[in-house]
Design a binder for these strands. Sequence first.
RNA 1: GAUCCCGUAGCUCAGCUGGAUAGAGCACCUGCCUUCUAAGCAGGCGGCCGUUGGUUCGAAUCCAACCGGGAUCACCA
Length: 627
Amino acid sequence: MHAGRELPSFADLIDATIKDAIFIPAMFQDRLQSQLVPALQAAFQQLFSATIDPQQFAFQPTHQPRTGSGVEGDVTINVFPFLKLSGKGPEPTAMAVGEHLKANLPIVADFNVIKGFLNIVIADGYWLGFLQEAGEKDILQFPPTGKKVMVEFASPNTNKPLHLGHLRNIFLGDSVSRILRSTGNEVVRAQVINDRGIHICKSMLAWQKFGNGETPESSGLKGDKLVGKYYVAFDKAYRAEIEALIAAGKPKEEAEKQAPLILEAQAMLLKWEANDPEVRALWHMMNGWVYTGFNATYARMGVEFDKIYYESQTYILGKQDVLDGLKKGVFHEKDGAIWVDNTPEGLDEKVLLRRDGTSVYMTQDIGTAIKRFEEYSGLSRLIYTVGNEQDYHFKVLFLILKKLGYAWADGLYHLSYGMVDLPSGKMKSREGTVVDADEIIEEMVQEARNAGEQLSKLDDFTEDEKSQLYERIGLAALKYFLLKVGAKKRMLFDPAASIDLQGHTGPFIQYTFARINSLLGKSGSLKTHSIEEMSGWKMAAEERTVIKMLHQFPAALHEAATELEPSSIANHTYELVKAYNGFYQTLPVLKEEDPLKRDCRLHLSSAVAKNVKKAMWCLGIEVPERM
RNA sequence: GAUCCCGUAGCUCAGCUGGAUAGAGCACCUGCCUUCUAAGCAGGCGGCCGUUGGUUCGAAUCCAACCGGGAUCACCA
């Protein structure tokens, strides 16, 4: 295939290095565990004279059985791993540790033991303090790390429009950028545009031959769509030529190489490389159309870039670096070509410069990586958002850069994601089975509109307000659908079944936000209480659950940042919102007569709304005030 | 042939640094709007966690083999 980075894994050797190098986005420590860990260590020290590595403590939320009497507790520690150290059975060990904690750590209000599980009840005061913090501060904004990171994503070819696969790439890259920003990093969002090569020449040639001077203006077509149309036209005419040649007795392979159209396209590429003014002018014009089209799509999605690399400017890079590497003995010459030997690392040999001295894909990536680290001083990480079909390519690239001796090579990371499948199988642009990006966005927005009109609770909205709302809801449904699945997993998209607006979806989360917003709007100003005043509040189970979900939010963000995995945030946000809805439908807020309870519930609602909004921001999803 | 990724409910997916009775959503069935937004809530139905072995007090989670699906291994990009 001709795709720049469009082809959508990793092996052990490099995996290890890269994994370790993945972000440590500031020192993050769970605020509850930071109190429990030292106390636990002290307990084991004093009770059993055992020194325990903090990593060894496995905390889990206290398990709640579905039926029967609930187990009391907020956090659970399993003592099985420590039985050898304590020299006692599970229950006595857990009991002893529990007693020690309760006696020495004020936030431990109580505990109980079931088998080897030590269930700890955390004092209300702790939760109240946290709730207050969550309401006042942005708990999903970590302190600055002082690190600068570049995230490359999108990276389309200019011969055809964006499709569903690009959407997964773009949403992932955009979200990862935001997550890294939220965890305190400075982020440079970059895309590489593959604007040169045989693919664009095909579109250009077909336009010249069959276009009759058609432009986006004259045709009313979006620029990228127009150019894509001629790419398809080329392919159709080219195939016809091949068939004619085959019919005339030529073998298929020969026919493919000798068809006049492909020869002409190749000739055009040579002219382009020779800077032929006419070809260059056509190229500028048609690429210009494509950029206008892409930019419209990016704008609609709310995605922006800080830096754009054009392959027409970068494809010459890397050659000198390879020659330098040859001098240093990192590479070797064979049959006139320059090779790297990665067999000691369990990989293959790979050509870096052809016998005729020209570059390959790898050469360019070597050069651009070096250039980026030169351009951006202090850049500590470079993340490539590229499909998993290029796992091997990046594995080799990173290894080469490491061999060249660049210290920053450890900061390279391939954010590899799985393909989006259709029920009919893989998307193939030539077979017309691609799902166009603009079309799917439009369909989702229409779906949101249909659903919204049926509910008819927006009668006082102007048409503009409605349109803006449906735009947000449709995009949220699409983005959330693509982001909630773990990035590495291959996923299925069924256009016929369409994306839900109910259940585990973006709109569900938006709806909860809007509902809270409505509550807050009706309540007037939030009355703040000190923790002492709030301590008169007897938390209901539903309220406690919501607070605990909120409490886990920073850890979810931290995980999303270390794993570069937006689905962690997406799924946690859903869990939180689900818990909130349970609370909302069980307990009165505005109708609560006890003013303290009412204020506390409003406070809780406000904190949920605020953090949900930030979490959704991390996914690139906007939340509406009303819906 | 070699390497990598994936196999969890009818469907789409969580859970995977080993821990209590494996969870959601959709679909299907039952309730809940004269009461803060029903794009909601509560409940029901639905599982040899691909198979077989191994490690362990304990395995969906770790290891091995196998089966099934996908990808990659160009002097293509």
